[in-house]
């Protein structure tokens, strides 16, 4: 994939499919240290499942036999000298505190670093596809912050869905205004 924002979209879709009600997406940049993490309160995974995740021939899907999401992300991080971390608490074992956190660490000065790309489209796409999930998005770059919290928007919207087009446009413009000041 040509943009990290596409990896982020792909990894975050895992959270929505795990039934998450709350998803937090954090991007942090300090000098050439670039990282992002996706935390959710979805169904989580057992320890054995987490161990198998980097194996492309492991997938829970039934439509085909390979799952490339995590292996792709791992490759993108490792080719810059970085790594990924996944921790998870399954709903069976942790009924009240289940969820998954996936983090990826990169060296953005490395020639093989995949640029972030259109992160605004990724955030808008996630909200469009999951209007009942709450997202907290933060991007910190050398002390400057871009952020969005759908709970705050929901409080204003009084039942108007987050996936209505004018609302999605507002989100897109809000983020691009914040990025122009970053």
């Amino acid at each position: 994939m040509k943009e990290l924002s596409l990896y982020i979209l792909d990894i975050t879709e895992n959270s929505t499919r795990a039934g998450a009600k709350n998803i937090s997406l954090e991007i942090t940049e300090e000098g050439s240290r670039f990282s992002f993490s996706v935390s959710d309160d979805g169904c989580g995974m057992s320890e054995e499942t987490v161990k198998k995740l980097s194996d492309p021939f492991y997938t829970t899907r039934t439509t085909r036999k390979v799952g490339l999401g995590i292996p792709f992300l791992r490759l993108a991080a490792e080719q810059t000298g970085g790594h990924i971390e996944i921790s998870s608490r399954s709903a069976e074992q942790f009924p009240d505190t289940h969820g998954t956190k996936t983090s990826a660490f990169f060296d953005s000065s490395h020639i093989d670093f995949v640029p972030l790309g259109d992160i605004i489209s990724t955030v808008v796409t996630l909200i469009q596809g999951n209007p009942d999930t709450d997202f907290v998005f933060t991007h910190t770059k050398d002390g400057k912050l871009v952020s969005l919290d759908t709970k705050e928007l929901r409080a204003v919207l009084e039942g108007v869905p987050l996936d209505s087009f004018p609302v999605l446009e507002w989100i897109r413009e809000s983020l691009s205004e914040q990025y122009s000041q970053m």
């Binding site: 994939m1 596409l6 979209l9 792909d10 879709e13 899907r61 799952g67 490339l68 999401g69 792709f72 259109d118 489209s121 990724t122 808008v124 796409t125 469009q128 596809g129 087009f165 999605l168």
Partner: peptide
Amino acid sequence: MATCGISAGARPVLNAFVE
């Protein structure tokens, strides 16, 4: 919008339909 769709370019397609 799985890994296969996203890497093949589904994000702009979705956003074009919405718009």
